[in-house]
Design a protein around this nucleic acid. Structure first.
Lengths: 132, 132
DNA sequence: TTAATTTTTGTTATAATATAACACTATGTA
DNA sequence: TACATAGTGTTATATTATAACAAAAATTAA
């Protein structure tokens, strides 16, 4: 059985870059950064990204095709994500709001669907950009 | 001032294809379908899509890079979208849940951000696929 | 410890998604 | 009419992502 804590070399390199960034990174920008560490091809980056998303170390911001580290050390596999995105400066923050999470986690429609995860992205202007 | 109801030729053609489909369509599949109507290039499709999204006639399913018609005739500009997506058969439905919408519309974080829109995507198994 | 299995790697090529730039046309407005 | 704005058609190209294959490394089972 696979130990979810143990990352391979490429996975570590990619995770490291993403964790050092406060903002989401795009795959090809990650590729550019890791070339000096011996990762040469897109696929090497995408494979690492896939795995890191799968084990919850990073999340994909779907509307931006970018990846951000999960700061919530408690959860190893995150199936429920909420982000706020500033449409002016593109600043992205993960939102951890217990009340909101509970609300979404227990949401049931009338179609008999079984939800196992969700992704919510809020768009607007951050404090700074909203002033102008 | 532009009348938001009046669509151009290309916009009508693209909207028509999307409205006739019960499921989200991808840009290049739309392109393939509209070639017989004189639309030849990706950009012609993307421009129509952009406009249709802007005026709320269609929505983009971000996690799938696909476009679906908005069935909610009441709203012309939709800034708040909720979808349920079956991860097995890829069936997508727009959810109109007043209580959920209100909850999300009034959501405030503690970062001083002004939200003007949001997109929520639920993932799971639909009734049919959940049985297996 | 060997063999079988699974996972990861490295690589090349290519598929799928999306936009830049430019000249031109149509439409609305003053 | 002249002007402004929005949409069109086109070519080229940028960006994002995966297929396919062989080899190496790690894991597990006998």
């Amino acid at each position: 059985m696979q130990n979810q804590q143990v990352l391979t070399k490429n996975q570590k390199i990619v995770l490291d870059i993403i964790e050092k960034s406060s903002q989401p990174l795009k795959a090809y920008s990650i590729l550019f950064d890791v070339k000096k560490k011996g990762i040469n091809a897109p696929l090497q980056v995408y494979r690492a990204l896939d795995k890191l998303v799968e084990i919850g170390k990073i999340h994909k911001i779907e509307s931006r095709n970018a990846f951000i580290a999960c700061k919530n050390s408690k959860c190893q596999i995150t199936k429920a994500t909420v982000f706020s995105i500033c449409e002016n400066c593109e600043d992205v923050k993960e939102i951890h709001d217990h009340k909101l999470s509970e609300h979404l986690k227990h949401y049931k429609d009338n179609k008999g669907m079984k939800y196992s995860k969700y992704n919510l992205e809020f768009f607007g202007l951050c404090k700074k950009c909203g002033k102008n």
